[in-house]
Amino acid sequence: MKQTLCLAILLISSLLTSNSIACESLLFSELAPLSRNQATAQLNEILLSDQLKATNADQTLEQQLQSIRCYLQVQANQDPRLGNSGTELQGLADALINADTAEARREAISAINQAVNRDAGTGFLLMPLPGADSLELDLFSELINFSCDEEPASSCSEAFSTAAHLWWIAGVYRGLADQFNQSDVVASQAFNQRLEKKWLSYKDDTILLWPQEVLLNSLVFRQNKRGFTEPPAYKLLSLRPSIGLSYLSDADHHLQPTLNVDLLGLYWWRYGGADGSEAQPGRGIAASMILDGSDHSYGFTYYHNPKWSVTLASGSKNDVVLSVSMQLTHWLLGQ
């Protein structure tokens, strides 16, 4: 019994000690005597400053959160509006620190985001209270002006100090996610890079589309209802004109330039590369029409790549029409 009592006293004493240290370290570096105007200017400066980063380095995260809880508990004794916001904040932080799954971590981040906010423009703070309630506090009109206009100077002085502390506390909580979201941030950066590259590759590394084909492909493109959609691995071809060099079986001049039009076709490929964002060389087929000036023939086109194609067709005047794209002709003649 005596041993248990001693242990309890020791425990309480150590808690008090740790709280005391933590609360002290919540303070900023120095305090300066100022007029009210000067104090307002300095508070404005605090509201616009990057204090969060400047004070983070001095304490571990746990120490910082403990200090905040301690500070808010004491402040709540003086300003009942703060209620149990310290405990609520600690609960939000604990949920984030102890989250053992990615889902739990994201939920905890979202909960903090909903509960804590600050606005330098209006001087408003949002802090959590028990239940679904939040405390929306106007630092200037509800805290400083109220204290400085209605109360003695000592209370005014404290109001400035409290405003600065509360602002900083909200900032610490707004920045808490930074220490837990890095895996999602790194993955998202890679995702964004890859998605943009893949769309560029879709457009530029495969067959180029005519306006009517962009319209047709957009009509058949299935977008995800949620989130981003990756580009497809095909393009529909439609009413696609090109000039070919054709062999006409029954014409006086067997070899002639012709106007070839792909009526409807499909070009497809796979994505490869290190991150799967690069369109690989594809293949295509199309139902085509060949116009040679006096006859039109119908047949099929095979695309070996976007620029090399061969069409085999048949018309009323020519039983066999064999046409190759100009780019392929240039290559063949060059060999």
Binding site: L16, L31, A32, L34, D50, Q51, S157
Partner: peptide, 21 residues
């Protein structure tokens, strides 16, 4: 357990750490 600003005829306010940007 926590520090707050001191009382007096002049106001005291928490000032910015030197490195705060």
């Amino acid at each position: 357990n926590c520090f707050t600003a001191a009382s007096g005829s002049k106001l005291r306010v928490i000032s910015l750490p030197n490195e705060a940007a």
